[in-house]
């Protein structure tokens, strides 16, 4: 995916928060990344280190909290676990599964100095 753009989005959010809340150094950036979001964590880590240079989170640790994927199967009429978007329902094999969680890409919190 566009990990570089995501890293830039993270930098903006972190810099905005530092400016509005008056802190100057971030030690840990905690993200929530859904399993269905098609984000490559390794690629995001690489971009993160590059993009955060000379920001208040230069050298910060990146913590990625994964959010498991689940969806609503219309056939089974229940919530089922899925590990990729557009995977069939693990119970009935139907493709009519609407993702209900696991697509998030959020900056959750920051540990600051």
């Amino acid at each position: 995916m566009h990990e570089m753009s995501l890293a830039e989005g993270i930098r903006q959010i972190v810099e905005d928060a530092g400016r509005s809340q008056g802190f100057g150094k971030v030690k840990i950036v905690v993200l929530e990344i859904g399993e269905l979001s098609s984000v490559e964590p390794e690629s995001l880590r690489f971009c993160f280190d590059v993009v955060m240079k000379d920001s208040i989170a230069d050298g910060a640790q990146l913590q990625i909290d994964p959010v498991p994927g689940s969806g609503w199967c219309m056939q089974c009429a229940e919530t089922v676990p899925i590990s990729a978007l557009y995977d069939p329902c693990p119970k009935c094999g139907s493709y009519q599964v609407q993702a209900t969680s696991g697509t998030e890409m959020r900056v959750k919190e920051l540990e600051i100095e």
């Binding site: 989005g9 959010i13 959020r106 900056v107 959750k108």
Partner: peptide, 15 residues
């Protein structure tokens, strides 16, 4: 003691 700041913001919220 760690000082945490809640953000809870979508990475693409700006877009």
């Amino acid at each position: 003691q760690a000082q945490m700041v809640k953000i809870e913001q979508n990475i693409l919220a700006k877009n």
